[in-house]
């Protein structure tokens, strides 16, 4: 395998790809001190293990890596070898800079061909992921090698093709991690994982695509499963959680109705008010008045 290392700013190869911070391949035949110390990364790092056995520490957790494994490290996370050495073997990797939106969400950026919805979902799923190692993902290795081929050969259309392949790499990885994080055939468990994610970030404008992706399913199957299991469509189930949380806040006097609306994920206090009234017969203001007490 060809060894190379391109870094943004240092290699002219990457001048057409400002979002690629680093692209490399290394066949390590000898152990060297301080060749692989723990470091904090700036972009989204994707490592693929071609050969060998590696011991890395990723966000303070030890991991042993084998051929076929993909390691996913997110911006701000620390990883490397505890003793600073790179084990014998062969790895390919890429570091991509993600864009941070005002709302705090990470998305791939303008170069990507993903739709806004898809970008948000990919960003969301990568950040929610708690297990950085994806096993048996040879597709990712294949894509990384094709990207390296394109960048070396500069054939017609290579810029477009490389960006498409990065999109494909992100999709492949995102799909794999939702599959890996969800026990197959145990929908109640899958649903409760999703439930917990929704509650943790209730102010987020969840789309069905994002929810389905967390559950590791296509939207059609996801809708059907959720409806079967809960009796509600995914969006209506979410409204259920939102109203329940809003009721708790309305019963406490110190939070304004506008804040409650936004904290529980409604677009506006108007949207909150209409939804709330439709279900309970009260506007949030009336409900609060009926449930507050002068002491």
């Amino acid at each position: 395998m060809l060894q190379f290392l391109y870094q943004q700013g240092a290699a002219s190869n990457l001048s057409l790809f400002p979002h690629i911070l680093e692209l490399g391949a290394k066949k390590n035949a000898s152990i060297q001190l301080q060749s692989f110390p723990e470091q904090v990364v700036e972009g989204v790092c994707i490592y693929f293990i071609n050969e060998g056995r590696f011991e890395w520490k990723i966000t303070e957790q030890p991991h042993v890596l084998f051929p076929g494994d993909v390691v996913l490290i997110l911006p701000g996370q620390k990883f490397g070898n505890e003793k600073g050495i790179l084990d014998l073997g062969c790895i390919t990797w890429m570091q991509v800079k993600f864009q941070k939106l005002e709302s705090g969400e990470l998305v791939p950026g303008k170069w990507s061909g993903l739709s806004d919805h898809e970008s948000m979902a990919v960003g969301k799923l990568l950040t929610l992921n708690s297990n950085p190692v994806l096993s048996k993902l040879n597709d990712a290795g294949r894509i990384l090698h094709s990207i390296a081929y394109e960048i070396h050969h500069h054939e017609l259309g290579f810029v477009t093709r490389i960006n498409q392949m990065i999109d494909e790499l992100l999709i492949t990885i995102t799909r794999q991690l939702t599959k890996q994080n969800n026990p197959p055939r145990d929908f109640p468990k899958v649903f409760m994982n999703l439930e917990a994610s929704l509650r943790k970030d209730l102010s987020h404008q969840w789309s069905v695509e994002e929810m389905a992706a967390i559950a590791g399913m296509g939207t059609t199957l996801f809708n059907e499963r959720v409806k079967n299991f809960t009796g509600f469509t995914p969006i209506n189930y979410l409204i259920n959680i939102r109203i329940s949380e809003a009721i708790k806040l309305l019963k406490k006097k110190d939070v304004s109705i506008t804040d409650i609306a936004l904290d529980t994920g409604f677009y506006s206090s108007q949207h909150f008010s209409t939804t709330f009234k439709k279900l309970t017969g009260y506007t949030p203001g009336e409900f609060r008045k009926n449930n507050s007490y002068h002491e």
Binding site: G231, F232, N236, N240, I241, I243, S244, E245, I247, K248, L279, T280
Partner: peptide, 15 residues
């Protein structure tokens, strides 16, 4: 279990 969610779910389904 969350009593408010149980109540809201009941209300929603009944409606």
């Amino acid at each position: 279990q969350d009593p408010e969610q149980i109540f809201i779910t009941m209300l929603y389904v009944l409606k």
